[in-house]
Design a protein around this nucleic acid. Structure first.
Length: 111
DNA sequence: CTTTTGACGGGGG
DNA sequence: TCCCCCGCCAAAA
């Protein structure tokens, strides 16, 4: 196996990969699950490197507002938005509609 | 080695 | 309600 740059990165990748189809979560929720509550910025930073991992559906991770904070990092266009809509999610103005309904909390869903 | 950034979150004015 | 600032911690330059 390749040597991971950081345990946090790897951890964020795994949690993100566990997000079910048609569900979304927030950076803070993942950070909370990692026990690093408060440093949600680190989650976003970690996902920055996840862009090279197609197995990591980072498009399902948004901020607490349900806004596609880093859609610009996914692709040159609205690739992130397309992905979410393809999963049955409604995105309006880069914001997930009924975000709370589709919200998936790892600390609650995962054992 | 030090300094700055960073896809956030929450609080205060 | 909108705007600004602080904090947390790790990685990259």
């Amino acid at each position: 196996m390749k040597k991971e740059k950081g345990q946090f990165f790897n951890d964020v990748y795994e949690v993100t990969k566990l997000i079910p189809f048609g569900r979304v979560t927030s950076y803070g929720a993942i950070a909370n699950y990692l026990g690093a509550k408060g440093n949600a910025r680190m989650v976003g930073w970690a996902l920055n490197g996840a862009g090279k991992y197609p197995e990591v559906p980072a498009h399902r991770v948004v901020n607490s507002q349900g806004i596609l904070s880093g859609r610009h990092y996914f692709g040159p266009g609205d690739e992130m938005k397309e992905q979410l809509e393809a999963e049955g999610l409604m995105v309006k103005d880069d914001k997930i509609i009924d975000f709370k309904k589709h919200f998936w909390d790892p600390s609650t869903e995962l054992p």
